[in-house]
Amino acid sequence: MNPTQQALRVAVWQAAPVIMDAAATVDKTVHLIARAAASDAQLVVFPEVFIPAYPRGLSFGFVVGSRTEAGRRDWQRYYDNSILVPGPETEQIGEAAREACAYVVIGVTERDRMNRTLYCTLLYFGPDGSLLGTHRKLKPTGSERLIWGEGDGSTLTVIDTPFGRMGGLICWENYMVLARAAMYQQGVRIYLAPTADFREVWQSTMRHIAVEGRCFVIGCNQYVEKSMYPHDLHYRKDLDSQPEVMCPGGSCIVDPYGEYLDGPLFGEEGMLIADLDLGALTRTAMDFDPIGHYERPDVFRLEVTK
């Protein structure tokens, strides 16, 4: 799809969910979408699993070879505050997107309708309020595998928009070389990277992808303090050894030259905002185009199983 729009205003929300409270977090999401719309944002981006939270630091009573009933109850609380897609929560977010006349992208924990598997999922809403697409994380990292199932190639989603093709990968999926190649192959111009990674080296990843993919990269993380966790969790003692600021953020907006347009933001909740000059996508392709003169299909071939 050829873009019809030459500029795009993007808002990125580095915010904390109301941890393990889906209804309250959806209400906060709706409020933050409206605030971004007041700044004339046309695309509003939220972090990985903003609903109902990234359960950083919690064990849910899992150790190799055994589980506990108290841990199962914490997990059920997380499960009960995860959402169906589509469902009433996606309808609320879609309506907020429609009122804002903006694209909205948000990470959630999704409950499968047919079984009790959870997925780390990225949702795409259009300015008409419709749910345009989903992406389920292909490979949860480390202990995340105790919480979320694996997605498949059918949800390597790319959305056509007036400003070009938009798509993304979640957190350490961005270290999966062929997953990135699959996104480039689909012509991504606006590359979304919601994450839970706040390391300094993650900034290098965001800048590298922008240069490698000749795309704008939108990195979005949560800001979370230990005091924000519910105090009645059975395994809240897991957090005793954690710092008070458990996730300091690091959200950023990077242009296809690898330069920051806004951020990285650390140490607080806040909204990043930037006006993207979409003409830069063509200018940077003059000397390197990952799906053009640098693709070399006579030498390399990528096949995605869906």
Rank of each mutant, 00 (worst) to 15 (best):
residue 138 L to M: 14
residue 108 V to P: 14
residue 76 Q to Y: 04
residue 125 F to M: 06
residue 95 E to S: 13
residue 82 S to R: 02
residue 61 G to T: 06
residue 108 V to E: 08
residue 95 E to K: 14
residue 65 G to P: 06
residue 144 E to R: 06
residue 86 P to Q: 09
residue 86 P to V: 07
residue 100 A to S: 07
residue 71 G to P: 00
residue 71 G to M: 07
residue 125 F to H: 04
residue 95 E to C: 09
residue 106 I to V: 12
residue 144 E to N: 07
residue 121 T to F: 01
residue 79 Y to D: 00
residue 107 G to W: 04
residue 69 E to A: 15
residue 115 N to A: 02
residue 113 R to W: 12
residue 85 V to Q: 02
residue 103 Y to K: 13
residue 64 V to T: 13
residue 61 G to L: 12
residue 130 S to R: 09
residue 91 E to S: 12
residue 61 G to Y: 01
residue 61 G to V: 08
residue 120 C to N: 15
residue 96 A to Q: 06
residue 132 L to G: 02
residue 110 E to N: 03
residue 126 G to S: 10
residue 70 A to E: 15
residue 132 L to P: 00
residue 107 G to I: 04
residue 86 P to D: 13
residue 62 F to Q: 12
residue 124 Y to D: 02
residue 70 A to C: 07
residue 100 A to N: 06
residue 99 E to M: 13
residue 109 T to L: 05
residue 59 S to W: 01
residue 64 V to M: 13
residue 129 G to V: 01
residue 86 P to G: 09
residue 140 P to S: 10
residue 97 A to C: 12
residue 126 G to A: 12
residue 90 T to S: 11
residue 76 Q to R: 09
residue 119 Y to C: 12
residue 129 G to P: 06
residue 136 R to I: 04
residue 137 K to F: 06
residue 107 G to Q: 08
residue 72 R to Y: 04
residue 137 K to E: 15
residue 67 R to M: 12
residue 107 G to H: 05
residue 101 C to S: 15
residue 141 T to D: 15
residue 128 D to L: 07
residue 97 A to M: 10
residue 66 S to D: 13
residue 110 E to Q: 15
residue 99 E to A: 14
residue 90 T to M: 07
